[in-house]
Amino acid sequence: MKTPFLKAVFSIVRKDLQIELRSRELVSSMGLFALLSILIFSFALELDRNARREAISGVLWVTIVFASVLGLNRSLAMERDQGNLDAMLLAPIDRVAIFFGKLIGNLVFALVVGLLLLPIMTILYNYNLFQPWLIAVLLLGTFGFSTVGTLLAMMTVQTRARESLLPIVMMPIALPVLLAAVRASTNILTDNPIADWIAWVQILVVVDIIYLVVCFLLFEYVIEE
């Protein structure tokens, strides 16, 4: 008898969140990395008031992407190292449920880091990032990364090179998401009229849907043993 799909997804998400609440391993390492990255960018780019308007969304997104690469590697390597992946494969659940479970977990961690970055960057860069559209774009963008990231990290943790391979295979594939998200955020933060940039948000939605469908279809081939 199979466990119902949603119940299986929910259990995997709950397991991930519970581990995280107890160890605080992922969010703390991702958050610390993100904080360091913001500081490094602010030295490296010597951001003054005008340069900030243009560069801030790029800094935000690059930081989120690298932080989520860090998180994805940990999150999937954990499954593999401690034998939980085999247990999940043996369990009477839909294999796709594993994908959605891990995806939601990874999305939550990436979003937590993204949302933590907003107040920090607002304070450090003295620029208000709390705008409803920006948060919507943040959600769509992190969703896109997490989708391809979950599929590809599941692949790379099973390889020899492991951690070093994920950014190489993930960056080019995730670039359409990054491009649309950065362009939309830059326009939102420079107060451009909505007609100028709404196309970017639409592209982001379309890319997200395409990636979700493709990754959904391909996932079962990545975990068969």
Binding site: Q158, V169, P176, I210, V214, V222
Partner: peptide, 20 residues
Amino acid sequence: ENVEQRRRFAAVYGILAFVT
């Protein structure tokens, strides 16, 4: 290194990469 795994993952990545 695992030959079967290499082919399988390459197939998955080759399909995904066509988006670009």
